[in-house]
Design a protein around this nucleic acid. Structure first.
Lengths: 229, 229
DNA sequence: TGAATAGTGTCTCTTAGACAGTATCAC
DNA sequence: GTGATACTGTCTAAGAGACACTATTCA
């Protein structure tokens, strides 16, 4: 099939930096490419945007096709566009719209049509894997965006199940920022931020003292922010 | 001329939210369209990305072609991509990469090939003009990005000449945030932020007490940030 | 009963905000 | 001299960080 246009022709892809916590570690979803260029190399999941779908729909579709992740499992946010000539070795000019997808302890992925393997990789390891295209740079940008968003927004709850405890939420901050936080100061800040979390009234019993259960509140931004050191 | 591709075909445009201060007011560059769709409507400057130039080069080129602005006059930063089907009435699918361009008191623009008028418009007026395409939304996003960046980065200096006084810099914050700031507290914060500004050792004499002259320092981010109320 | 986990309060220091008067210069 | 502009410091309040012990539960 051949497509035509009156204007300079571009292909547009959606590439996704999907982040989740597994065993307390921040992990990114990588696929091993089994088709077209960069065969056998690790890459971010993604693919071509169809002409009749929105950029966001394409990102959701690729998450489903390449990793078996449902749209309800993640929160999507646009990162930026990458479009340098030569960033894709194919003769067509390819512009990638990169997305950040955040989810709670996501299931092991199911490889799709363009990948023979898909797995969650701790972000430190992923940065060492010499990803295909400019995906290492996209991953770096996505990580920095996620780290910054934890300061100014309530997006940390996207890494949690619908209900969670404050130690759960603290572990999100600790994993994404790769640091340790004081539990007392952390609780004071979270509970002092109007609308960040709401008590459900329940407690969860684990190995020690029962923990209060919360759900995400209506606030989307944090005033004042919770800053990294 | 007809272009062809193996992949779904997109056209890619660069649209620019160019902001500057004129007489102490935050203004955005608008053009009145004289070609193809939305003829006669006000819009952000922009145009199609060529197949052999980077997205950023296209933004600089369009600023030159449509408004006569040189690349050295502005600081460019990518905003995000806009690509909903139907955002452009032409049959081709058009994805726009939007950019923020910040500059010091920029000259009156020179209309280019696709515009019969180009002018700096106070942002409040621009938001009321029912811009072409989804440009009102892009403008809103650009303004919010600029306002947020003033908190966490040293980008305010992009609105200043190479050398400037602290009252100049304060007027940037006041115009972009549409608020009044206490000069004493402002100076304390700016001078307390390592690497934000450097003294040149000169003073500028105006109508009153001479003001110390500064230039932008090496810092690009602010720790801690200078927060809006 | 021992180990693991979560809950809670105070003190200190830093930062943020409110606030007024003096010095310089152009006209 | 008058008006305009820029410079400077203190006090108070709020927020951030450091810090230790108790309560509950499971094994």
């Amino acid at each position: 099939m051949v497509f035509q246009s009156r204007f300079p022709v571009f292909a547009v892809t959606a590439d996704i930096v999907a982040l989740t916590l597994r065993q307390g570690r921040l992990c990114v979803l990588l696929i091993r490419r089994s088709s077209s260029v960069f065969t056998g190399r690790w890459a971010l999941p993604g693919g071509f945007v169809h002409v009749d779908e929105s950029l966001e729909e394409a990102a959701y579709r690729e998450l489903g096709e390449e990793a078996g992740l449902g749209a309800d499992a993640v929160r999507l946010e646009q990162l930026r566009a990458y479009g340098d000539p030569g960033r894709d070795p194919r003769p067509e000019r390819v512009v990638s719209i990169a997305w950040l997808a955040l989810g709670a302890d996501l299931p092991d992925p199911t490889p799709g049509t363009d990948a023979d393997l898909a797995e969650w990789v701790p972000v430190g390891d992923a940065l060492d894997r010499h990803l295909a295209f400019d995906h290492t740079q996209i991953l770096r940008d996505g990580l920095e965006r996620a780290r910054a968003k934890l300061e100014y927004t309530t997006i940390a709850t996207a890494f949690c199940e619908p209900t969670f405890t404050l130690p759960d939420l603290r572990r999100v901050y600790e994993a994404v920022w790769d640091t340790q936080l004081d539990p007392r100061n952390f609780q004071r800040k979270i509970l002092g931020a109007d609308g960040f979390v709401e008590e459900t009234g329940e407690v969860i019993r684990g190995r020690g003292n029962p923990a209060k259960v919360y759900r995400a509140g209506p606030a989307r931004t944090l005033h004042p922010p919770i800053l990294r050191r």
